[in-house]
Design a protein around this nucleic acid. Structure first.
Lengths: 114, 114
DNA sequence: TGCAATATATAACTATCTTATACATATAAC
DNA sequence: GTTATATGTATAAGATAGTTATATATTGCA
C-alpha cells in the first residue's frame, strides 16, 4: 500500500482524469476504478472523495445527474467545459511532477528537460 | 512550476534520497540540488525543509555535524543506519506511487503489475 | 551603499486529508 | 431468518503537514 501522504495532493487530478476518460462516473465507482488501475495500491477514502467532488461541483468543474439504480441513488459526475481545461492543465503538471520525481530517485548524468 | 500540493507528501523522500546519493548535505544545498535536478520545477521552502530535517534528526533518521564556512554556519545532515533503511522503504513506495499514477494518467489496456 | 546570494530558524495560519460515524438497500451465505 | 458483505452517499472532529511571513547574519558584487 502506498502511504496516504504521498497520494494526498494527487486526489483531484486522479478524479478528474478518470472522468475525462470515462465520460461520467459516480463516487463509489471512482474508488473502485482507482483500486483496479493501481492493483489495490491506492484506495480513496469517502471522507476525502465526496468533499472533493462537492467542491469541484461548486467551482463549476463538474456537473451532476442523479439516477436510481436498484433503489440506490447514484450521483453521476461529469466534466464541464471548464473541467476539461482544468484536467488538461493538471495532467501537464502531473507529468512534470512524475518526471521530476524520477530525476530525483533515479538520477542519471546528462538528463535534460525539453 | 509544479503546484506545492502535489509535492507536499514527497518532501521527506526527496530529502532522504538526496542524502543517500550524496553522503551528506546541508539544508540550503538540498534546496539548490532539488531545483537543479528538476529544472526549477520543484523549489523547497525553508519553512518546510528545516522543520522536516529537525524532525528526522529527532527520530534518529539523520545525524548532524556543524561546520563553519566563510563565517556562515553549515549544518550537514547524513543518514543513520535507520535512515538508510527508511529511505530504501520510501523509494519502494515512491516507485509504486509513480507506477500507479502513470496507470491512471496514461491508461493502457492489459497493463499488469509484477 | 544597496542588492542578491548564502545560511538557518520558527510561529501563525491554512488546507487537506483521516477517522469515525450515520443512514439505507441488495445479495449471498449460513 | 439472520448475519455479513457489498453497494451508495454524507459530514463533523481532529490530525498533519505544509505556506507565508518574519528574524538574524555574512559575503560579494555593482
Amino acid at each position: 500500500m502506498i502511504p496516504t501522504d504521498l497520494i494526498k495532493g494527487s486526489l483531484k487530478t486522479i478524479v478528474l482524469k478518470l472522468l475525462q476518460e470515462n465520460g461520467r462516473m459516480y463516487g463509489y465507482e471512482i474508488t473502485r476504478r482507482v483500486e483496479e488501475l493501481t492493483a489495490g495500491r491506492i484506495k480513496l477514502t469517502y471522507g476525502a472523495l465526496y468533499p472533493v467532488l462537492h467542491k469541484l461541483e461548486n467551482e463549476g468543474v463538474l456537473v451532476t445527474e442523479s439516477e436510481n439504480f436498484n433503489n440506490r441513488i447514484r450521483i453521476y459526475y461529469s466534466l464541464t467545459d471548464k473541467g476539461h481545461s482544468v484536467i488538461a492543465e493538471k495532467i501537464e503538471e502531473m507529468k512534470m511532477f512524475i518526471e521530476s520525481l524520477q530525476n530525483i530517485i533515479n538520477p542519471q548524468p546528462g538528463i535534460t528537460y525539453a
